[in-house]
């Protein structure tokens, strides 16, 4: 065996602290949560009696959890496309070399820099349906614009529920998709566009046959990032709506928090956390494998 070189030793020594910290505080704790989810630990006092998958069985029988799963699927299914579409359209508009592009870019990107709690509180007010006496926020705006028939209960209406949260979340994260797409659009070689035009493509055709295919990797990575944000949704819901009427705005992360820290039912809480991890893994792991293969090939 070759003696390790000095460089190698130094790099190992520099990497070691973060490897150890991540091993303990990320993977170690994931393993501990997994273990806790198989025990009977349902009060402040730890009880590591092994009960197998009983916590998971009970969990799937709880109506609130079933509703949560439906909500998070609805949320993710709306949130990702909305962010991508709005983000792409904004990026295309900004790509037209408009005057004051920097200003607009900042304006659209800033919501992302705001804490989800601030977003939640602001949208809680704006989407407050108002009492019988008068409309507030967006409802008042609709009234004023003569669109009173569009007024509704927003997050207080169980039929809308989580979709009202999508509005706030989409407002916050569309700018992120825009920045990703803008970077992508700028990297599409002008020669390709011109070649397409010479071949007789209209402006739409250029986007459809040249630009969009080249942007596919960006769409993919934006969707993955947005997806994991969606599946871990917590702060926005807590500050904006809470669980909502009939749990219509509830999400697994909120249920996990209440189960663990309000009900002191640590085993059940850990089971919810593990299922959330599985959900995110279903999204992220195929992407990682895909990227890894590309890197190996390259």
């Amino acid at each position: 065996m070759r003696r390790p070189t000095r460089d190698r030793l130094v790099s190992l020594a520099l990497l070691a602290p973060s490897v150890i910290v991540i091993a303990v505080f990320v993977y170690g704790f994931i393993a501990f949560s997994g273990y806790a989810s198989l025990t009977r630990w349902d009060s402040l006092m730890p009880d590591f009696t092994f009960v197998g998958l009983r916590n998971y069985e009970r969990l799937f029988a709880i109506p609130r959890f079933q509703i949560d799963l439906g909500n998070i699927v609805t949320f993710t299914g709306l949130f990702i496309p909305i962010c991508l579409i709005v983000g792409f359209l904004l990026a295309v508009l900004l790509d037209q070399r408009v005057r004051g592009e920097n200003l607009f870019r900042s304006i659209f990107l800033f919501p992302m820099a705001i804490s989800a709690v601030v977003t939640g509180v602001a949208w809680r007010w704006m989407l407050d349906p108002g009492t019988a006496g008068g409309a507030h926020g967006v409802n008042a705006l609709l009234d004023g614009a003569g669109l009173g028939f569009l007024k509704n209960g927003w997050y207080t209406d169980p039929a809308i529920g989580i979709k009202a949260v999508v509005i706030a979340a989409g407002w916050q994260m569309s700018g992120y998709a825009m920045a990703m797409y803008l970077a992508g659009l700028r990297s599409v070689p002008q020669e390709l566009r011109e070649a397409a035009r010479i071949d007789g493509a209209g402006e739409l055709g250029v986007y459809r046959h040249v630009v969009l295919p080249l942007l596919r990797p960006i769409t993919l990575s934006a969707a993955i990032i947005l997806g994991q944000i969606a599946l871990n949704l917590f702060a926005l819901v807590v500050s904006m709506t809470g669980p909502g009427p009939g749990f219509s705005t509830d999400v697994p992360a909120l249920f996990m928090f209440e189960t663990t820290f309000r009900a002191s039912n640590f085993a059940q809480g850990a089971a919810i956390a593990m299922l959330m991890l599985v959900l995110v893994a279903l999204l992220v792991v195929p992407y990682l494998i895909h990227t890894f293969r590309h890197e190996v090939r390259a």
């Binding site: 990575s221 871990n232 926005l236 500050s239």
Partner: peptide, 20 residues
């Protein structure tokens, strides 16, 4: 830029989750 934004978004998600 994409890399930076991805990192920023992750950090944002992580912080957001802990606030309340």
């Amino acid at each position: 830029l994409v890399g930076f934004l991805a990192t920023a978004a992750l950090a944002f998600a992580a912080c957001g989750g802990a606030v309340t």
